[in-house]
Design a protein around this nucleic acid. Structure first.
Lengths: 228, 228
DNA sequence: AAGGAAACGGAGTTGACCCTCCGAATGATA
DNA sequence: TATCATTCGGAGGGTCAACTCCGTTTCCTT
């Protein structure tokens, strides 16, 4: 999915479509940024990004004004990718199946994109007002409600709990890919723990509102690396 | 718990006990390093560590030859802390209770020490042979076995699954503390998913051996930051 | 309390990386 | 194919943080 690349077109060519080599390099840079940032963190040297993409350093900065602009574009394309999951998840036959799909699809998406959590945090630092993911709050809320009405999902979980579980499951991606083939075991444990049953331990506390979850998933953390 | 500080004593004073101000500064530096690294990642400027600890830059390097030495010492004290959990966990009345305590105690320990995962990865990069945590493999194996024999723990989970779940639960610590009061909700879900029941979904795949888990939890990842 | 060893502080040196600049190359247009 | 705007490459200037060095201070010993 392509997201306009507003920053790009404004930086390079305010009017028409860019030259073919420019478009090719732009895509290459984004792709290499994802693997580089996954391997070495979002503060990896951009000179290395240039050499991995097979371009000069100047080309990196023609396409992205600076590191933050690059990170912002990675964020925007990620949010766009998120939309691609909607049809399958919302089209599931039952609410419970939607929950399963939500955890599986988003969990593996995060796990396979280890740069994402750091990117989200950095963007939130850069402009805290920017919260394009807020629209998903209603979606997950609806799914949770439906699954509870079916009597399949335990009544005491909230949409925020589900979202936190996605992040937790996705956190295996931080471990360099070695465990990627196995994390669905933990997913299964979680799903079994989410089913409505007569003898479940009540969840402690009251859960949280979705806005607080956004603040959490985008909070400053140790992966934000050295910066003010 | 104090762990000798071998690196320290060799660097500063090979024979006798160090001066009082030196000991005080050493402790201060370690303490400030934990909070600094939690807030800004393990590559935060050491000059800032110096000013936070109220010492000069030179003092940092007298106590720790370089950043890697500091990270190694943080690792060693963490492993030592881990031993403190053993009595309570092993002394539990049932194997199942040990499982509960293991997940709760280690989970909150990781969650409250957000610098830890990055430190583990960095140390594994520095010297891959150093695996002091290996001794814990037998401990968790024994607990899992006991809880299964009681019929309380589902039969298809392994000690590795439990360890991965600890890391997952602890990953909320990456989110800057905002969610720390709530993560026990997810712990409860996980525990409910771990109980032996007649109708559980079988866990997919075969699980892993413990050595592979060490490699995973210490694998290079995006938090390792820019370095070779 | 005096002497000496140990530790401290912080200015200065070095190296790495961000980003700019401009002559060279490439793709679009006619 | 010729022209020209657009994009590229990579050397180099500037900044920031790691680490060193040595005159000064603090602590320990007697």
């Amino acid at each position: 999915m392509i997201v306009d690349g507003g920053a790009y077109s404004e930086l390079v060519n305010p009017t028409a479509s860019p030259r073919r080599d420019a478009r090719r390099n732009h895509e290459r840079l984004l792709a290499e940024a994802r693997t580089l940032f996954s391997e070495r963190g979002i503060d990896a040297p951009l000179d290395e990004l240039a050499s991995r993409a097979g371009v000069g350093a100047g080309t990196v900065y023609r396409h992205f004004a600076n590191r933050d602009a690059l990170i912002r574009e990675l964020y925007d394309t990620a949010v766009a990718e998120l939309h691609d999951f909607a049809p399958e998840i919302l089209g599931a036959e039952t609410g419970w199946r939607s929950i399963e799909l939500w955890l599986e699809r988003l969990g593996s998406w995060v796990a396979e994109s280890p740069y994402l959590p750091a990117v989200m945090r950095r963007v939130a630092e850069l402009d805290p007002g920017h919260q394009p993911g807020a629209e998903f709050a209603d979606v997950i809320d609806g799914i949770v409600e439906r699954a509870k009405e079916e009597g399949a999902l335990r009544a005491d979980v909230t949409a925020v709990d589900i979202s936190v579980l996605v992040d937790m499951l996705g956190s295996v991606g931080q471990y360099g890919g070695a465990y990627l083939p196995y994390w669905r075991r933990q997913l299964t444990v979680v799903l079994d723990g989410l089913r409505a049953r007569p003898d479940l331990t009540p969840l402690p506390g009251d859960g949280q509102a979705f806005g607080e979850f956004h603040d959490m998933s985008h909070a400053k953390g140790p992966r934000s690396a050295p910066r003010d």
